[in-house]
Design a protein around this nucleic acid. Structure first.
Lengths: 122, 122
DNA sequence: CAGGATCCTTTACGATACTG
DNA sequence: CAGTATCGTAAAGGATCCTG
């Protein structure tokens, strides 16, 4: 005798809501998508590379976001044996599962920009 | 004589970066994905419906986010001829183009949660 | 019912300077 | 090079009360 989806007057699809929350909690903030998107393209990148590629980010945010991403097993941090030390960042296999999501995000953004030009010509 | 992708030591795929920024600027904040996700399921919903369905949101945020979404032509706001007035919110056709993105988001969230349980058993 | 106004807290973010 | 520490601002969000 289990109730199915609706509890009282609370709603519909809790699972979906929760899933959305989960994803957003991992990818929150202004920069994570950019960093991940860059790493999808770039494969292996150093701290300075990312600082250049991710437009507008500073060292503090970059370092913090990278730590977040590493904690969630989305990226690898590899300290190289050089002097001075360098670090290589790359996506984990698990991080690569984000590629479809990020592609959708980028794809929609492209269409969005086009749709705005369309509207402006009316 | 146009340069192609790389300008100086600035980077790779500006278009993609910009597209990601565009999407995020439209869907920024803590609630927009939830609201849109709910409207994808619910079709037509009133203010109070959304207040109940979108877990944890308050009137101020809900009203503000709905306005943002309406301004960007993602949702319709329909004032019904009742007393007291009621309002029906629904996705625009354009808003529905977000469905694949939101589905990806939800899908990834589900997998993410599973992967965490997986890790915890190690 | 739908939402605006107000006040307040929190946290996100940025600039700059500094260190191993 | 790859960060950390410090400081300061701005934006985001929440609680509560109020109104047509």
């Amino acid at each position: 005798m289990k109730k199915k989806a609706v509890v009282n007057n609370t709603p519909v699809c809790q699972v979906r809501m929760q899933a959305i929350s989960d994803t957003m909690s991992v990818l929150s903030g202004k920069w994570k998508f950019h960093i991940l998107g860059t790493l999808i393209e770039g494969n292996k990148l150093g701290f300075m590379d990312l600082l250049r590629e991710v437009n507008g980010i500073g060292t503090k945010m970059l370092s913090k976001e990278l730590q977040d991403l590493e904690m969630n097993h989305l990226i690898n941090r590899n300290v190289m044996n050089t002097k001075p030390i360098t670090v290589e960042y790359s996506l984990t296999e698990y991080g690569k599962t984000l590629a479809p999501l990020i592609d959708e995000l980028a794809k929609w953004g492209v269409q969005y920009r086009q749709s705005i030009y369309g509207l402006e010509r009316d």
